[in-house]
Amino acid sequence: MKDWPYPRWVAHRGAGKLAPENTMAAFRLGAQHGYRMFECDAKLSADGVPFLMHDATLARTTNARDIFGPAASNTGGDHSWSELAKLDAGGWHSRAYAGEPLPTLENLALFCLANGYHLNIEIKPTPGTERRAGEVVARHADRLWNNAPVPPLLTSFQPEALEGAMSTAANLPRGLLLDTLWKGWLETALALECAAIVCNHTLWDTSTVTQAQSAGFKCLSYTVNDEWAAQRLIALGTDGIITDRVDLFAPG
């Protein structure tokens, strides 16, 4: 990207841990704290609807076991959207959010577009669906943000998902997520024509920032919840900080 249109501060999964992650309540709360960009996790239902959830399985952040029985350790990809839409995705967090539904990617897109917010969509494939998830999420994002002044940033730990996104909507910016600096990380990001590299914040130092920025990438970090870590990353000249602590860091 010639110009980087995104703010430095990004609210992780909407409002970090202050509200049930990846729900509309969380994004609204993050916005109330002044955040203008959010990170979310998108995966596919069995019938191909992109919806928001981080985990491979439903058990941690929904009442799926109450609805579907003990087999709710199954993935979201095992159920149609009409089934998933019945789940409570807020009660696990606190009683104040009981009954909060799972949102689709379209729900969040409409909220962001109506309010001028930016979005980082992490593609979270059900294992075995990496390329298809990238294709479908990118197709929906391209449709939803059609002609919008700032497109969403599509990221993934899975190169296959980013390949699918690139083949479907090459115009949408991509970012490679890294939890370790595995062999060939820089070359892979170049091959995927990424705009950014998004690292576990501990991986950034003078050397890695120089490597990435010299190759033309923006440097983003997750998940930064301590003042000292944020100051270190700012001093290194990195470009984006993803945080749970929307109550601690004023996005500016």
Score class of each variant (00 low, 15 high):
residue 1 M to G: 13
residue 3 D to C: 10
residue 3 D to T: 13
residue 7 P to S: 00
residue 8 R to S: 07
residue 14 G to T: 10
residue 18 L to G: 06
residue 22 N to R: 04
residue 24 M to I: 12
residue 25 A to T: 04
residue 25 A to E: 06
residue 45 S to D: 08
residue 46 A to T: 04
residue 47 D to V: 06
residue 52 L to G: 00
residue 60 R to K: 14
residue 63 N to H: 08
residue 63 N to C: 07
residue 66 D to P: 01
residue 68 F to S: 04
residue 78 D to P: 02
residue 78 D to C: 15
residue 79 H to T: 06
residue 80 S to N: 13
residue 90 G to C: 08
residue 90 G to T: 00
residue 95 R to A: 15
residue 98 A to D: 10
residue 107 N to K: 11
residue 113 L to M: 06
residue 113 L to T: 02
residue 114 A to P: 07
residue 117 Y to D: 03
residue 121 I to H: 00
residue 123 I to R: 01
residue 130 E to T: 06
residue 131 R to N: 08
residue 132 R to W: 13
residue 140 H to Q: 14
residue 141 A to Q: 02
residue 147 N to W: 12
residue 149 P to I: 10
residue 150 V to A: 07
residue 150 V to E: 04
residue 151 P to H: 11
residue 154 L to T: 01
residue 158 Q to P: 03
residue 160 E to S: 11
residue 162 L to S: 01
residue 169 A to V: 07
residue 169 A to C: 09
residue 169 A to Y: 02
residue 171 N to I: 13
residue 185 W to P: 01
residue 185 W to L: 07
residue 188 T to M: 12
residue 189 A to I: 01
residue 189 A to D: 03
residue 189 A to G: 04
residue 190 L to C: 08
residue 192 L to Y: 08
residue 194 C to T: 00
residue 203 L to E: 08
residue 203 L to S: 04
residue 204 W to T: 11
residue 205 D to P: 00
residue 211 Q to R: 09
residue 221 S to P: 04
residue 222 Y to A: 05
residue 224 V to T: 10
residue 233 L to E: 01
residue 235 A to L: 11
residue 236 L to A: 03
residue 239 D to P: 02
residue 239 D to T: 03
residue 244 D to C: 04
residue 248 L to P: 00
residue 248 L to D: 09
